[in-house]
């Protein structure tokens, strides 16, 4: 087989994978939209997913958010004070942390914790015939396993991103007060002067899309496991890589659309 044949073959496999994922996504969305009438969403799975992905990651996210807020102020102060533009620190905090880093970093934490665990869990369920068991009860694995997880991760990521924003602002204020003793109220007034509703909403809108795709990719890769336990880690690696790529691509798309609309 020559080189061009190999490229062609890879391309076909790639397109097939995209089509397969597209079909999976369409099924999940269709089932999700018909949930209200069918009430198939499993509250227990949903709540557990939000608890695991959201609440249990809260401290990790908090520490990172506090640190990032502080670091931005620290670095920003060093650079901006050299030309008397320390006022721009608020702009920096809004543009860098709230608009970009909050959703991206939270998404990366969720990929590392929950994306991997969802993929491993579903992969192992597939190997141990638990998916078949659900089907034998007439329970759709998409309804029972995927939708609740996707919805759970979306809710958790959305929530974590809000906490990230709030805590990074606190971190920012805490470190600002090292350089200039500034009351929290004044700090917030300056910050809100630079912060628009759009900035805040764009960060949570991103988190919803990130959550959706991270969970969807992780579930999809988990369910792609066929029989062998050795497939599980391989699929998990793929889930992580594809989730990170998806997050970056979606981030660029949403940011582009945001600036296009404005």
């Amino acid at each position: 087989m020559n080189y061009i044949d190999r490229i062609g073959e890879r391309l076909i496999v790639f397109i097939e994978n995209i089509k397969s994922f597209g079909r999976f996504m369409a099924t999940v969305v269709r089932r999700f939209l018909s949930l209200y009438s069918e009430k198939k969403i499993n509250a227990d799975v949903l709540v557990r997913q939000v608890y695991f992905t959201g609440f249990e990651a809260f401290w990790l996210v908090s520490i990172i958010a506090f640190g990032i807020g502080a670091l931005i102020i620290l670095q920003g102060n060093i650079i901006l004070s050299t030309f008397g533009q320390t006022k721009l620190m608020y702009v920096l905090l809004v543009t860098v942390v709230i608009r970009e880093l909050s959703s991206i970093l939270t998404a990366l934490i969720v990929i590392a914790r929950s994306g991997t665990s969802i993929c491993t869990e579903l992969g192992n369920m597939k190997v141990s015939h638990e998916i078949d068991l659900l089907q034998s009860y007439g329970i759709s694995p998409i309804n029972y396993l995927v939708i609740s997880r996707v919805f759970g991760v979306v809710v958790a990521l959305f929530t974590l991103t809000i906490y990230f924003n709030i805590i990074s602002i606190l971190g920012g204020w805490f470190f600002t007060s090292f350089f200039y003793p500034i009351p929290f109220k004044d700090f917030m007034m300056h910050l809100i002067g630079e912060l628009s509703v759009g900035d805040l909403l764009i960060s949570v809108i991103k988190s919803v899309f990130f959550g959706f795709f991270i969970a969807l990719i992780s579930c999809y890769q988990g369910l792609q496991v066929v029989v062998a336990r050795t497939e599980v880690p391989q699929r998990t690696i793929r889930a992580v890589v594809q989730s990170i790529l998806a997050v970056i691509v979606i981030d660029i798309l949403i940011t582009y659309i945001y600036y296009l609309v404005l």
Binding site: V47, Y51, F58, T159, L160, I162, L200
Partner: peptide, 30 residues
């Protein structure tokens, strides 16, 4: 399970209310 439900509900509710208040506050300020 009850505790999980309570903690999760509180966790999500606090964040959602904070976001809502912040949005209203900013909108009001602006």
């Amino acid at each position: 399970t009850k505790r999980t439900y309570r903690v999760t509900g509180f966790f999500v509710l606090v964040a959602s209310i904070s976001l809502l208040l912040l949005v209203i506050f900013i909108a009001f300020k602006q």
